[in-house]
Design a protein around this nucleic acid. Structure first.
Lengths: 150, 150
DNA sequence: TTTATAAAGGATATTTTTGTCCTTTATAAA
DNA sequence: TTTATAAAGGACAAAAATATCCTTTATAAA
């Protein structure tokens, strides 16, 4: 019925989050990083990660520089980007807005059997993604409070 | 990048949850329900729903009766089945156990940047699925506190 | 200005999930 | 015992997600 992970986020989103957090951390050290470095350091498929970074570049979350000595950086004012914005670009917002049982119409007025029980979970998730910025996570990494590889 | 819903559960699991809740509610009214009825009432693809119900039958969550006047029921002692058991059969338990960023190894000792922030959300989700049984949800439906269609 | 480098973009391939169709098996009722 | 009915099961199809490859574009440095 299932092969591995019906996870919270899609693979695109997982790679995207890992990538921006890594790039953010490197940016705090004034390092510009290439696609090759990113995919090695976050252990993700390179060409696929390129596509994800293209999306994030188009949406002005990361900045890309072409040519020799090029790579990816996150500009200082973009370090305040919330995780929710990254997720929104890559997975949309159905994690917050969608019905847990997949009903098209499901709200407080005509709720599915799980609607009210999902409210707290969804709010927790939203708050978590809105209260964590690339800057704060990069700081956690720099303080060795977290790792991205493995 | 995405077409519709990176939802909490797979489609199989959404249909499965809707189906067992519906069957549970009908069981409280002493109704045995056919696949056709189930898929009509929960608005799901019939043949696909059949496969999902087969899984749940194999795992002894629903009881199926073949032949004329056959259909699906949930035996009384199975009405205390927790949603977590249904989810476990259809999607596995990676929603609880897996890393939010998709890392293979991620735990309190070497946490990804989101690990600790995910703990609360995951626990909420687990508690919700463990504290709701088919019996309690069927009761909600009978009390018109919830609907499954649309 | 040429060259080398690195991201962008387009086309295509693979895998997984979702979905259908048809035959087989079990069983209740005539 | 025959017949009709409904689930089980196997094979297959379509769609979506994941992943790769190759060409084009931009650019920094020689």
């Amino acid at each position: 019925m299932y092969t591995d992970n019906p996870s919270m986020f899609s693979k695109s989103c997982e790679y995207g989050l890992r990538a921006v957090i890594f790039i953010a951390q490197q940016t705090t050290k004034n390092n510009k990083v290439s696609l090759t470095t990113v995919s090695e350091e976050i252990d993700s498929p390179q060409a696929f990660t390129a596509k994800v970074l293209q999306q994030l570049t188009k949406n002005n979350i990361v900045k890309s520089i072409k040519g020799p000595y090029g790579g990816f950086v996150i500009e200082d004012h973009k370090m305040d980007t919330k995780l929710s914005e990254v997720v929104s670009v890559l997975d949309g917002d159905s994690i917050y807005t969608g019905c847990g049982l997949g009903l098209k119409q499901c709200d407080a007025k005509s709720p599915c059997p799980l609607h009210n029980k999902f409210v707290a979970i969804r709010n927790d998730l939203r708050n978590m993604l809105e209260n964590n910025s690339l800057r704060s996570l990069a700081a956690d990494m720099n303080a060795d409070l977290a790792i991205l590889k493995r």
